[in-house]
Structures are given as structure tokens and as C-alpha cells.
């Protein structure tokens, strides 16, 4: 598979070199991923920073998506008809709307017009440089919170639909004997979920959850339409600055690929451990 992929890319590169008369200039590219500043310390370049933001965005979206997905799964398996219908509707909505459109809707629902993000940013700024540094390290430059949060919300809702299906399947497939044993020991319904069934569900679905996280990392590129400088928008900006189109997009593709591939190897190893 990888060999085939490499061959296809090689053929494409050859076409570009020969037919398009493309003027390759790779030497400039690496500094945009990582470089040494005047003090000799390593600094992330714009592409490196973009990847870091892609990662932060995905971690937030996945964390919220996991929580929301679990809630939806429990609601769909629960006794309340109202909750079942509500959860079902949300899942169907997010599964049948393109992520890009979902993102734009979220932007108008959770963006600066709807929620007081500038005031929140000012509040964080007033808390002192330490708090501000922490908040920015965990999310994004304070001025971009009004875009960051809608982006996280849209991705989270989009992913929650998938997470909820994963959870629902695993909960339904849980051994009936586990419920019965927990029941007979006197555990409450909540305890049966929290102490017995969910820990097993998390363990069993870990590979799917990991796969969904990688999928979130990829989906997060739609956020570039909101001009949030994750890897894709960073690449666009770099393309407009240095005009080495092919090099930049090949680099961006390689960064996504290598990062996601390493991540999947890591998950596979963790799972075996």
C-alpha cells in the first residue's frame, strides 16, 4: 500500500517536473516547520505552529465530542422518550450536514456576535500574564477565541455523532451477565454504568476512538475557511508569501500524514500494552 502510494506520488512529481516545468525550491521550506532563532534556540515555524494548533483544536474537539457522544449514546439507550428523540435528532443532524456547513452555522451561533468572546478575552487578560499564557497555550491567541470556540464546537458536534454510535454499539454489545452481576451486588443504575460497563466499553472501543481522533485531526482542516491558523490555513498563508505552491502543499500533506501515521502506530502500541 505504502509502496503504491510512493509510486503514485513519484509519478505525479515526475509529471510536475517534466510537463509543468516546475521550478522546485525545497531549500526554503524546512525553516517554516522548525528553525533556530537568533539566540540559537529551536522555534516552531509557521507550519509547525499550524500543526500545533491543529493538534490543540483536535484535542479540544475530541474531548468535547467524547463527552457529548457519550451523553448522546446514554440518552439514546435511556428510558426517556423525549431524550431519546432529542439525541437521535442531534445525531442525524450532524451526520447529514457537511462539516463545512456545520462549521459556518456554529460560527454564527457561537461566534463573536452571539457570545461575548472579546469580554472573555479581556477578562483573561486582566487575570495576569500567567493566566493569559496558560489560556493561550491551551487554546489560541485570545483575539481568536471567537473563532476557535465555534470551530471546536462544530468539530465536537460533528465527531460526537460518530463517538455516540461507537459507544452505543459497545454498550449494547456489553455482556448481560455484567449488568446482572452488578445489579445483584446492589449497584445503582448509575454505578452499573460508571463502575462496570463504561470502563469496559472505553477499553473495548479504544481503537475506534483513536481512529476517530485521527479523523478529527484531518477534518479540522475545514477550519481554515474561518482563517484560523491551523496547518491548512498556515499553508495557505505561506503559499501567498513565498509562492512555492507545490512544495508547500506537499509539505503540508506530509506533515498531516507523518503525524497521523505516527499517532496510529502509537495507539496500536498502547493498545497492545
Amino acid at each position: 500500500m505504502l509502496v503504491f502510494l510512493a509510486a503514485a506520488l513519484g509519478w505525479l512529481a515526475w509529471r510536475v517536473l517534466v510537463d509543468f516545468k516546475y521550478d522546485w525550491q525545497w531549500a526554503d521550506i524546512p525553516q517554516y516547520i522548525l528553525h533556530r532563532d537568533s539566540g540559537g534556540r529551536f522555534q516552531l515555524g509557521t507550519l509547525g505552529q499550524g500543526l500545533a494548533l491543529t493538534l490543540r483544536l483536535s484535542v479540544w474537539a475530541s474531548a468535547l465530542g467524547l463527552a457529548l457522544g457519550l451523553g448522546l449514546a446514554l440518552a439514546r439507550l435511556g428510558a426517556s422518550l423525549y431524550l431519546r428523540l432529542a439525541a437521535r435528532s442531534l445525531v442525524e443532524l450532524s451526520r447529514n450536514i457537511p462539516p463545512l456547513v456545520l462549521l459556518l452555522v456554529a460560527f454564527y451561533f457561537f461566534g463573536a456576535q452571539a457570545l461575548p468572546w472579546p469580554r472573555l478575552a479581556a477578562f483573561i487578560r486582566d487575570c495576569g500574564p500567567g493566566v493569559q499564557w496558560l489560556a493561550e497555550a491551551a487554546t489560541v491567541r485570545l483575539g481568536d477565541l471567537d473563532v476557535f470556540f465555534p470551530a471546536v464546537a462544530a468539530l465536537a458536534i460533528y465527531e460526537a455523532a460518530y463517538f455516540s454510535e461507537i459507544f452505543r454499539g459497545a454498550i449494547q454489545a456489553a455482556d448481560r451477565g455484567q449488568w446482572e452481576a452488578a445489579w445483584c451486588l446492589g449497584l445503582s443504575r448509575l454505578q452499573q454504568y460508571r463502575l462496570i460497563v463504561l470502563p469496559q466499553v472505553f477499553r473495548k472501543t479504544a481503537p475506534q476512538l483513536a481512529g476517530q481522533f485521527i479523523s478529527t485531526l484531518k477534518e479540522s482542516s475545514v477550519v481554515s475557511v474561518l482563517s484560523l491558523a491551523e496547518l491548512t490555513y498556515s499553508s495557505m498563508k505561506l503559499a501567498a508569501t513565498i509562492h512555492h505552491l507545490f512544495e508547500i502543499w506537499l509539505t503540508a500533506a506530509a506533515m498531516y500524514f507523518i503525524f497521523n501515521f505516527l499517532l496510529s502506530l502509537l495507539f496500536a502500541r498502547l493498545e497492545r500494552a
Partner: peptide, 17 residues
């Protein structure tokens, strides 16, 4: 009264985690 009735199942039903 659930916990007053100690049940032992054919399939053990131990908690594997």
C-alpha cells in the same frame, strides 16, 4: 434487599477490568 441475596452465576460474571 438486592445485596442481601448473593448470586453466583453459571458464567461467573466477574468484572474483567
Amino acid at each position: 434487599m438486592r445485596p442481601e441475596l448473593g448470586m453466583v452465576f453459571q458464567a461467573f460474571n466477574l468484572f474483567p477490568h
